[in-house]
Design a protein around this nucleic acid. Structure first.
Lengths: 147, 147
DNA sequence: GGGGTAAGTTCTCTTTCGGAACCTGTCAAT
DNA sequence: ATTGACAGGTTCCGAAAGAGAACTTACCCC
């Protein structure tokens, strides 16, 4: 399994990571979900080098996760927005946030947590099967070859 | 934000990625969930170099995601198993698999999908709030500073 | 003693990353 | 008309990380 050929793997974990498995990529996605759309703003907020940021944005656009829209001509300027495919990454971000809050301690206060936009109350995510509503755990669900 | 100091960030995305944000790490975790416990077996299945694999296993053990247990003396041999903290990564793996199956196409057949261990039927994961059961979407939930 | 197994380590070479400076096109102020 | 600022990159160089293969250690069996 070579990193450069990961996207052709049959394993969905490998294919997924070929898009978002990079060191910085999910942090760029986080910025997009927070509404950050411009190059310089992302660069300042993340502390990523401009070179690497330009490369990641190019790749994410090529993979259909971000869309590059012009917001002015003269000089021509673009902003980056999540596509539907990019918005579909939300559950990954949410489960990652929950895992880190439960398992990677920090002294930083106040902590950043998940909140309902409506009620402003904290959210604790849980995975269930869409069809049956049964909870999904590592004991109840596994990944296998489907016929 | 420096990569080497990510674990002290207040943002849970950054802290989470400081543990699992590496190119190979989630693939190692996948192997663990599939029951692979030994160095050589992981190395052969992943095609990762031995050097990098040894490094990742060391880091994952240091982070408390994997436990290194001796399964024989003379010569001393260890195997790697998920800790509770490691098992807690299951939702991230599941959402990643689902996203990739829906959004990163492959010609490979048969495809690897999520199945219930009981019923052998396919599963489609969905995130809900543990307390209210309300679905979690990027419109309904956001991450904010908690007081 | 030769070969096999398991878990690494060491070596060299190539790729990627970090950091800083530079470039381009436009506007606004001096 | 020049200078400076802004936005979104690109270029350059040295440092760090990764790939690939060989080597090491400690045991067993033949």
């Amino acid at each position: 399994m070579k990193w450069t050929e990961l996207h052709t793997e049959s394993c969905p974990v490998a294919r997924g990571l070929s898009v978002i498995g990079d060191r910085w990529t999910m942090l760029v996605i986080r910025e997009c979900f927070l509404g950050v759309r411009r190059f310089d703003q992302m660069q300042a907020r993340l502390g990523i080098t401009r070179h690497v940021l330009a490369d990641r944005l190019r790749k994410l656009e090529a993979d259909g996760v971000l869309r590059r829209d012009a917001y002015q001509d003269r000089p021509l300027r673009h902003e980056y927005r999540l596509t539907e495919k990019g918005k579909a990454l939300h559950p990954i971000l949410v489960t990652l946030i929950d895992w880190a809050n439960q398992n990677v301690p920090t002294e930083a206060t106040p902590m950043i947590t998940l909140l309902s936009r409506d009620t402003e109350r904290p959210i604790r995510p849980r995975l269930v099967d869409e069809e049956t509503g049964a909870p999904i755990t590592h004991l109840s669900v596994t990944a296998k070859l489907a016929e």
